[in-house]
Amino acid sequence: MASPLLSASTLHKTYGSGPGAFEALRGLDLDIAEGESVAITGKSGSGKSTLMHLLALLDRPTSGTITLDGTDTARLSARQLNRTRNSTFGFVFQQFFLNAQASVLDNVTLPLKIAGVPRRERTSRGLAALAQLELDDKADNRANDLSGGQKQRVVIARALINRPRVIFADEPTGNLDTATGGVVEDILFDLNRSQGISLVVVTHDDDLAARCDRSVQMRDGLIAAHEGVAA
């Protein structure tokens, strides 16, 4: 098997210091292959979000290493980290984190703006991404005026606009009803299958976890159980 896209080994993450310190991750190992979908499940407070943030290079582990394409990410400069997050990763959160006053199009093209893509190209790519999610007629609406399901589709459009290799999703359907959540799931798995984008999904939802190639269950900062195709 080829070297994994993302690989975490003996990850430790401690919040705080001294007597109030809390060890959220306690020496965890996990590999994620290119194009694979992985669900991270577990009780609340077990460290799922913490793990996802470390994998997404939003935070640095207290100890242990994370490699991306075989490169130790601890050695990347702040600039390289920013560029990696911008162009290699896409983010979908439970809270949508949309700029309520800005237009749908502006929200979707934010990663391109950050990357320094010229305005004209931003607009055309933004419209294409919205068309993919059947939202192109909403491009000029304020983000605030959309329904919950539409908002989450806008977030997905934003996550995929920079053609990422991995989409990190933290409870992507947590704020949606079952039907709408199902639509959003379909979109994510469709992207995974058709474009080979890896999915890392944190979820409480067993059905969603079951749809992934693989699911890992966390308990107290460690992986308690693997399900599906073992890595």
Partner: peptide, 16 residues
């Protein structure tokens, strides 16, 4: 706060 956090997550540098 959240908007800034999001933009930084999406790779906006602190200088910017």
């Amino acid at each position: 706060t959240r908007e800034v956090g999001l933009m930084k997550a999406m790779g906006l540098s602190s200088t910017r």
